[in-house]
C-alpha cells in the first residue's frame, strides 16, 4: 500500500495531537515534574537512624504519623515498643499499648534493664515484601523507599505475610496493603518525615545515604549500629544505635 503525502501529514498531526494530549494528561496526573520541582530520584537513597539512647517513649512519632498519614485506628505505620529484660534474656517483657500512640504508663522495676524501641518499615534494599507482590503494586522507588501503589494493589496480603518485621497492615477501608511511605510526599519536597519532625529528642533522624554531606556517614563510622533481624538479610536501611540483642 502506498502512502500519500497527505496521508502521512494527517497521520503525523494525529500523532502530534495524541502526544500533546498524553503529555497534558500526564502533567495533570502530576507525572511530569511540576515547574520548580528540583527533586531527582537518582540523587537520593533514603534511610533512618534510630538512637535507642535518646528515645523517651513519648509516642510523639506515632501520633504525628497518624496525623500526617491518616493511619486507621488500631493499625500502625510506626510504633514504639518498651522492652524490660531480666536475666532470662529469652523472655523479655515487651509492651506496645495501642502502638504507644499515647506513650506508656510509667514503670519503675528495679534491677530490670529497660528501654524503648521505635519501629517502622525498614525500607529494605532487598525487600521480601516487594519480591512477593504478584502484580508489581509494591516496589522500591529509585530513591530507596518501599512504596505501595494504592490504585494497583489487589489486597492479596502476601506482602504482609512476607514482612519479617510486621510493618504492613491491611487497610480496612481502602482494602489494600498499607505501610510507612517514609513520608515520601515530604522528603521529596525537602521536608523531613512527620515522625522525625515531631521527635523531641532527635532519636529518629531521616538520612540520605547518597548525600556525601549527610551526617549519617560520620554517625555510622563513629557508632556501633545494628539493623533488626540481620539474619533475614533484607538490606534494612533503618539503623539502630545501641540496640540490645534481645530485641526482635
Amino acid at each position: 500500500m502506498e502512502m500519500t503525502r497527505r496521508d502521512l501529514l494527517s497521520q503525523c498531526s494525529k500523532l502530534l495531537v495524541l502526544t500533546a494530549t498524553a503529555a497534558r494528561a500526564l502533567e495533570q496526573a502530576g507525572n511530569a515534574p511540576a515547574p520548580g520541582d528540583t527533586y531527582h530520584m537518582a540523587d537520593h537513597w533514603w534511610g533512618m537512624i534510630i538512637d535507642i539512647d535518646k528515645c523517651i517513649g513519648c509516642g510523639n512519632c506515632v501520633r504525628a504519623c497518624s496525623q500526617e498519614n491518616q493511619v486507621p485506628a488500631g493499625y500502625f505505620r510506626t510504633w514504639v515498643e518498651r522492652y524490660q529484660v531480666t536475666e532470662d534474656r529469652d523472655h523479655p517483657l515487651v509492651e506496645s499499648p495501642d502502638g504507644a500512640i499515647n506513650g506508656f504508663p510509667p514503670t519503675t522495676r528495679p534491677g530490670v534493664k529497660s528501654f524503648f524501641v521505635p519501629k517502622l518499615c525498614n525500607h529494605c534494599a532487598d525487600s521480601p515484601c516487594t519480591q512477593v507482590c504478584p502484580v508489581g503494586a509494591t516496589f522500591i522507588s529509585p530513591d530507596g523507599v518501599v512504596l505501595i501503589d494504592p490504585e494497583y494493589c489487589l489486597g492479596c496480603r502476601y506482602c504482609i505475610q512476607a514482612c519479617p518485621y510486621g510493618c504492613r497492615y491491611y487497610h480496612p477501608e481502602k482494602d489494600i496493603a498499607d505501610k510507612c511511605t517514609l513520608c515520601y510526599h515530604r522528603i521529596t519536597k525537602g521536608l523531613t518525615t512527620a515522625c522525625c519532625e515531631a521527635c523531641p529528642t532527635g532519636a529518629r533522624q531521616l538520612v540520605d545515604l547518597k548525600n556525601p554531606k549527610d551526617p549519617v556517614h560520620a554517625f555510622l563510622r563513629d557508632h556501633k549500629v545494628q539493623v533488626l533481624k540481620p539474619q533475614m538479610a533484607t538490606g534494612a536501611k533503618i539503623f539502630y544505635n545501641d540496640l540490645d540483642g534481645s530485641v526482635r
Binding site: 502530576g30 507525572n31 508489581g136 503494586a137 494497583y152 511511605t181 515520601y184 510526599h185 519536597k189
Partner: peptide, 20 residues
C-alpha cells in the same frame, strides 16, 4: 522497575499536615 511510575506521583500528592 516493575510498577506504574504514576504511583510515585500519586503518593507525592498526599498533603502534608506538619508544616516543618
Amino acid at each position: 522497575g516493575h510498577y506504574r511510575p504514576a504511583a510515585l506521583d500519586l503518593i507525592r500528592q498526599h498533603p502534608a499536615a506538619f508544616a516543618g
